[in-house]
């Protein structure tokens, strides 16, 4: 264990002594600031007039329901439910004297910053790819593998360093979104909650719980993408290929899962199960019978297969270049 600890320390040194690591982190923070400022510009500032605005919205909702009355039931059923739930939500706000337009930092954390998390996937893929491929292209792999450490522990130390990087970046994003959101929109307390209507009942969703769930589930996707980059850079010893393929999967996954959702077998593909945050608002995936636990199971299975392939290739490889 002491040996592994030193190895991870070394890998961390090789990550954080490179300027690009810090440039990527700085880029992410700047992006958070820019998004917060832009959102503030477009946020409706109703102040004390919010009651009038809520009533206006309720009237609009009623009007919409009336307009739909003549349309075929099949098309409007879902929309009607949604509008009715919106009315319940707005009336709850009036009764309990809570402005629904009051934006706090938690709304920012849950709203905009969660989209920035895919940027961490991108960075993690770059970092993980070069942890392995870099050693090969620099030639330093020869000095690394002639030390009194079994190969698997050197591989493991690199993987752990990549995991730590993801954890660090996710925490960084969370903390800075909360902080910058607070400075721009004002700070909400730990009990700050969203009013959500579920099956006609008003439910308070504590913002901190929701954001932690979201960050946690999004991190799973990031870890799997990083593991793919890790595997590809081990197989091909090429950072470019590792980054290319992982990024391709990152951006094609959603589209591909949508296109393939008509096929039953597509539910076993990694693409269809990569985005777990989908289940925060949906009880079922795009394909019938696909649930959160099913997706999680498929993800873990792929993850294990990727790790085993990586380990096997790395263990067997002749370092001959």
């Amino acid at each position: 264990m002491v040996g592994l600890y030193s190895l991870v320390k070394n890998e961390n040194m090789k990550i954080y002594r490179r300027p690009r690591t810090w440039i990527m982190a700085a880029f992410m923070i700047v992006l958070v600031i820019v998004v917060a400022v832009i959102m503030k510009q477009f946020a409706p500032d109703v102040g004390d007039q919010w009651r009038g605005k809520v009533q206006e919205e309720i009237q609009q909702d009623h009007q919409q329901l009336k307009d739909m009355a003549n349309a075929p039931e099949a098309f409007t059923a879902q929309a009607k439910v949604r509008i009715q739930e919106d009315i319940v939500r707005l009336q709850y706000a009036l009764e309990h004297d809570i402005s629904p337009y009051d934006t706090k930092n938690w709304d920012f954390v849950n709203g905009a910053s969660v989209n920035i998390i895919s940027l961490i996937s991108l960075f993690a893929v770059v970092i993980a790819g070069s942890l392995i491929a870099g050693e090969f292209s620099w030639g330093s792999i020869k000095l690394l593998l002639i030390r009194p450490h079994p190969r698997w522990s050197i591989l493991l130390s690199k993987y752990l360093a990549a995991l730590l990087y993801i954890v660090g970046m996710v925490i960084l994003l969370f903390v800075f979104s909360w902080l910058i959101g607070g400075l721009v929109f004002g700070f909400g307390g730990l009990n700050y909650a969203d009013i959500v209507v579920d099956n006609g009942h008003v439910v308070k969703e504590t913002a901190i719980v929701k954001s932690l769930q979201f960050y946690g589930l999004a991190a799973v996707t990031t870890v799997i993408l990083m593991t793919i980059a890790f595997m590809i850079s081990t197989i091909f010893r090429s950072n470019a290929l590792a980054i290319g393929i992982s990024i391709f999967i990152l951006y094609i996954a959603n589209v591909l899962s949508l296109v393939l959702s008509q096929f039953e077998w597509a539910k076993y593909l990694i693409f269809s199960n990569l985005d777990l945050t989908y289940y925060l608002d949906h009880s079922e995936g795009l394909i019938d019978g696909v649930t959160f636990s099913f997706s999680l199971f498929i993800d873990i299975a792929y993850w294990l297969v990727f790790l085993i392939i990586t380990w096997w290739i790395f263990q067997k490889r002749d370092i001959a270049s």
Binding site: M13, K14, R17, R18, W138, G139, S140, K142, L143, I146
Partner: peptide, 11 residues
């Protein structure tokens, strides 16, 4: 040292 000693240039 196996062939050239390739160290980490950024360190």
């Amino acid at each position: 040292i196996v062939e050239n000693p390739e160290m980490y240039k950024f360190l």
